[in-house]
Write a protein that binds this DNA or RNA. Structure first.
Lengths: 232, 232
DNA sequence: GCAAGACTGTTACAAAACGCAACAAAACGA
DNA sequence: TCGTTTTGTTGCGTTTTGTAACAGTCTTGC
């Protein structure tokens, strides 16, 4: 569960953001000034989201402070528009810069991309997720059912499951599955996706009769339905 | 001197860009289609700048192609505006997404930030690496299992393991293994790679029954699955 | 409500890719 | 040279995936 530190003085925005992110399995801490934020060590977080316009010390100053002691990914938010501002922010050590008002999904995508990159370069794939007695471990790509029964998955089955779980609570379109799992442009006649889903369902049901996690949404794809808990 | 690969069909833009970047000490290669670009190995570059709208295969497809075999940083350029486009591009594996017309200085800033992030962590993985109680030491080419048991590897086995670990978390293609370990152009009939993998698996399993780190990904190669930690 | 058509679920079979044992050849060290 | 280790080859068994076929389910227009 990635730990996010949001530094933002507008209470409405920070509340919205932290709700949005917590629902997507981030662990959020909010500070409303740079001074406040500096009571924590930067290394206690996996990523920073920093508003540039803060009372007292600015977001840019905070960014420099973070960079003095760590490499923790940092994204700047700002109501000010313009290339120059963005360039300046990035040159000072921010990894990305998003203008307000922003689409929360875009922030999420950029955060994910950034975490993905920093994990990749650290050669770590993040850990386990669990749901209804099941556990999926990304580090070794293994799935365990209730009573910790190991359920071997083929590489495509694993890829499918990962996509579905990563997307929770959003359904994944058939075409996207085609793209991400099979690396093809799926034409509508192609049944590979359904069959893959069917096979995965069957395997999971063989271990746990109640394992109906994959819901079909007609014309829209498949949705993974379960309370997912991250564990690192 | 960072090596940049620019994939852009608009000759004016690519010329401008490569001039701009070369003046700032980048080494540029330009392709005007994805198909063209795929004649090079992704690993020959430090960063990609990819226009999304290309004749033939699209920039997004190219991005996915790159991600299948490498972690090389990649920035998408696009004339199309809108959050959704940007989100989609980033979700497909791009590190950043810039809309045209863009300020070259902003592109440069973002490239620099990205290179900074990927270098910062990458190069310290050089001496020993460890995973799940195992240790691989590059300096003397020795592998130790749990309880520090020394497991002697033949030179090809070591070469294979090194390739797999260096690539984490990306799978290594069979052809690449042929190239890098045996120094041959692998023809599809050749079974040497599987057998080498099989032998390495067997050796490691003899020391540690849970040592199933090498995952087969059908048609795509082998992937090393473990949380790798560098130590110098 | 009902039938036609579109979408999805599932099975069965075939083809391809891969795992691995067993043996042969080659390389290597003393 | 001999014995040991490593690597290549062959062959067969297993797993995974693609394909076709058919059954079920939802939607829509009437």
């Amino acid at each position: 569960m990635p730990r996010v530190h949001i530094i933002e003085d507008d209470a409405e925005i920070s509340a919205l953001l932290s709700t949005y992110l917590e629902r997507r399995d981030f662990n959020c801490v909010v500070s409303n000034s740079a001074e406040d934020a500096q009571n924590h060590s930067p290394k206690d977080f996996d990523i920073f989201i920093v508003d540039i316009m803060l009372p007292g010390k600015s977001g840019l100053d905070f960014c420099q402070w973070v960079r003095q002691t760590s490499n923790v990914p940092l994204i700047i938010l700002s109501a000010e528009k313009g290339d120059e501002k963005r360039i300046h922010g990035i040159e000072l050590g921010a990894d990305d810069y998003l203008e307000k008002p922003f689409n929360p999904r875009e922030l999420l995508a950029r955060m994910t991309a950034l975490l993905r990159r920093s994990e990749r370069t650290e050669k770590r794939i993040s850990g386990k997720v669990s749901f209804n007695g099941w556990t999926l471990d990304r580090s070794n790509q293994k799935l365990h059912g209730p009573q910790n029964i190991h359920l071997p998955l083929s590489s495509t089955e694993y890829a499918l499951l990962l996509q579905l779980i990563d997307a929770v609570p959003i359904p994944v379109q058939r075409e996207d599955i085609g793209k991400l799992v099979f690396n093809i442009d799926l034409d509508p006649e192609d049944r590979r996706v359904d069959i893959l889903v069917s096979r995965l369902r069957k395997k999971m049901n063989a271990v746990d009769a109640n394992a109906d996690f994959i819901r079909t949404i007609r014309n829209r794809g498949y949705q993974f339905c379960a309370d997912i808990q991250g564990q690192g």
